[in-house]
């Protein structure tokens, strides 16, 4: 039933329109400063003159977390359909559905243990 998604589309249009209007109204109604001041255009660093790159290097840990997220979030997505049909299968006496998901999660849990062993989730030191 794609008909269900018509309200979603309308909602999207209304919200995007609202966000655009808010941004534009701020430009229209906001006061402008008359003089051009160079100091206003510098990056904010509590009043100090910025030194070095403005986008410094950062720890590779953040990147590793992002990759692990992709892996485990897909696991979560696969659990949703299982959760919805679980009781239907139970009432049909198909206990296998429990053991099969245990296998699926078990395989990914080994991957999780590997990530732990490699100290991918360790943020100290």
């Amino acid at each position: 039933m794609l008909n269900q998604y018509i309200p979603v589309l309308m909602h999207l249009l209304v919200v995007v329109g609202f966000a655009t209007m808010t941004l534009l109204m701020s430009v229209w109604f906001g006061r402008r400063s008359t003089s051009k001041q160079d100091i206003k255009d510098t990056a904010y660093e509590c009043g100090m003159i910025p030194i070095g790159e403005n986008q410094p290097r950062f720890s590779v840990k953040f990147y590793i977390v992002a990759m692990l997220f992709v892996l485990f979030d897909i696991e979560v997505v696969f659990l949703y359909p299982w959760a919805v049909v679980f009781r239907d299968f139970l009432s049909a006496d198909q206990i296998l559905i429990f053991w099969s998901i245990l296998g699926f999660v078990g395989i990914l849990f080994v991957a999780y243990l590997y990530a732990l062993k490699k100290r991918a989730l360790n943020w100290v030191g």
């Binding site: 990056a43 904010y44 660093e45 410094p56 950062f58």
Partner: peptide
């Protein structure tokens, strides 16, 4: 924002 504080904040928030 091209500035250090927002950059660090953005990276932390994402993670």
């Amino acid at each position: 924002s091209n500035s250090k504080y927002p950059f660090l904040g953005g990276v932390r928030a994402t993670s």
